[in-house]
Design a protein around this nucleic acid. Structure first.
Lengths: 235, 235
DNA sequence: TAGAATATCTACTCATGAGTATGATCGAGG
DNA sequence: CCTCGATCATACTCATGAGTAGATATTCTA
C-alpha cells in the first residue's frame, strides 16, 4: 500500500521471493486489501463509521480514495469486512470448544473469554456496532445471521450447563443477553481505558458472571449499618 | 405542532383556557418542544442518528424543517436532549434510593431495575448511543460527566455492598462495567424483540446478576466425562 | 382593528462525502 | 525497447442534508 514515492515499501512487498509469480501477485494484493480493512477498522474505531470518510481512510494509508476503491467495493463492504474480522475469532472459539470434555460452564467461560478479547480487539468496535440501519438489506441479513449464530451458541451452552448441573438453572435467553451485552459493551469504554488487556477484562467479567452479587458464604447480611466486615475496596 | 391545515389541534392547544396569557404561551411552547424531542428520539431509535435527517423528524411531526429549528438549536442539541431525557430517570433512581435503610445490594438492585427500564424506554437508544464523536467537545464533556456520575454511583453501591456484606467481594470497577454494559445493551435488541416489558427485562437481569452462573446448591457438577479435571482451556 | 409577538412556510446556500471517468506510471514478458 | 496489464492519481459528478434568509400566517394585546 505504500506509495511509490516512499521507496521503503518494506512491509508487504516480497522480501521473501514469492514462490510463484501468479501466487505472488495475488498474495500481494490480498495483503494490501487487509491493510485497507485494518485501516478502516482503526478509523471507524476512532471516529465512528459515519464520521469517517473514505478520504480519511485513504489518507491514513497515504494513498487516495480511488486506490481504496480498487481494493474494496464500497464503504458498506468495508464495514462488513471489519465485522467479519471481528466475529471470526468468536466463531472459532465455539468450534474449538465443542468437543472438549468439560462441563458446559467451563466451555462457556472459554467462549466468553475469547468473546471478550475479540470485542477488545481492533475490530471489536466494528463488530459490535455494525448496525443494520447502515447496511443494505442483504448485508443486514448476513450480519444478523452471524450475530444470531453466536447468540444461539451461547444459549445452547447455557442450557447444556443447566442440564449437566454446572450452571445454576436460569432463563437461557435472558442470561445470554446479559452476558453478551456486558461483553459487547467493552467496545464502548475500552478505547478510553486501556488499563487492562482484553484477556484480563474478559477474565474479570467471567469471574463476575460466575460468582454473582449475592454472597455465597452462609454469612448473611446484617441489613445496613454495623458489621462492616470483609475486604476493602479496589476502586 | 399540528399544522393549521389540520383543524384539529386537539392535543396541545389551549382547549382549557390558560390561566395566564404569559404562562399559557410558554407552556404551550414547552409542550411542543418536548414533542419535537420525542419525535427525534423515535426517529433516532428507528434509523440511527446519522441516518435521520431533520427533514425526517419534521415530516413525522407534519411540519417543515425550519419549524423544528424554531424549537431546537440544531441536531446535536436534539440528541443531547434525548440523552438527558433518558438519563434523568436513572439519576432520580439514585436519589430515591440513597436514604433507604436497606442493604446496599438491594439499593443497587433497585437502581439497576430503573436503569433497565430507562434503557428500554423510548429514549434508551439515544442515551446509550450518544457518542462523543458526534458531539461538540463541550457537549461531549457534559455527557461524559453524566455517564461518569452514574458509573461512579454504581461502583459506590457495590463497594458499600461489599462492606455491609450484602455483596460478594469483587472488583467494583469491573463489576460496574459488566452490570451497566449488560443493561445498556438492552437498547440494541429491545426494538426487535419486545416480548417483555422493560421492567420484566430489568428484573430478569437482576436475577442473573444476583445468582451468578455457578450453582449455589451444594450439588456439584457431574462433569461431562466423569471427573475430568477442570483445567482451563488453552487458547 | 392596528400592530406586535409568535409560529410556520418557501426557497434557498453551502459543505461534505460517496462514488467514477479517465489518464498516468510501473513492472514484467516478449 | 515496446506493449500490456496491474496499480494508483487527478479531477470530476452528484446527491444529501444541515442550517438560514426572508416571507407569511396566526394570535394576542392594546
Amino acid at each position: 500500500m505504500n506509495s511509490r514515492r516512499s521507496s521503503s515499501s518494506a512491509a508487504g512487498r516480497s522480501s521473501a521471493a514469492p514462490p510463484s509469480p501468479w501466487r505472488g501477485r495475488r498474495r500481494d494484493r490480498e495483503v494490501k486489501r487487509e491493510a485497507v480493512i485494518r485501516a478502516a477498522a482503526r478509523a471507524f474505531n476512532r471516529k465512528g463509521y459515519h464520521n469517517t470518510s473514505l478520504d480519511d481512510i485513504a489518507a491514513a494509508l497515504e494513498v487516495t480514495k480511488p486506490t481504496v476503491y480498487y481494493y474494496v467495493a464500497n464503504k458498506e463492504h468495508l464495514l462488513f469486512q471489519c465485522f467479519r474480522a471481528g466475529v471470526e475469532p468468536i466463531r472459532a472459539a465455539f468450534r474449538a470448544v465443542q468437543d472438549l470434555e468439560l462441563p458446559a460452564r467451563e466451555r462457556l467461560n472459554a467462549v466468553l473469554r475469547h468473546y471478550g478479547e475479540a470485542v477488545a480487539s481492533e475490530f471489536g468496535w466494528c463488530m459490535v456496532r455494525a448496525e443494520d440501519q447502515d447496511l443494505s438489506p442483504a448485508m443486514s441479513r448476513h450480519i444478523k445471521a452471524l450475530k444470531s449464530e453466536i447468540d444461539q451458541g451461547i444459549r445452547r451452552l447455557i442450557r447444556e450447563g443447566v442440564q449437566d448441573g454446572s450452571i445454576e438453572p436460569c432463563d437461557a435467553k435472558m442470561t445470554a443477553f446479559a452476558l453478551a451485552g456486558a461483553l459487547n459493551w467493552i467496545a464502548h469504554w475500552y478505547r478510553e481505558d486501556q488499563s487492562l488487556t482484553g484477556a484480563e477484562i474478559a477474565a474479570a467479567f467471567v469471574t463476575v458472571f460466575e460468582r454473582g452479587l449475592r454472597p455465597r458464604s452462609a454469612s448473611q447480611v446484617a441489613t445496613r449499618a454495623p458489621l462492616k466486615r470483609r475486604e476493602r475496596i479496589a476502586r
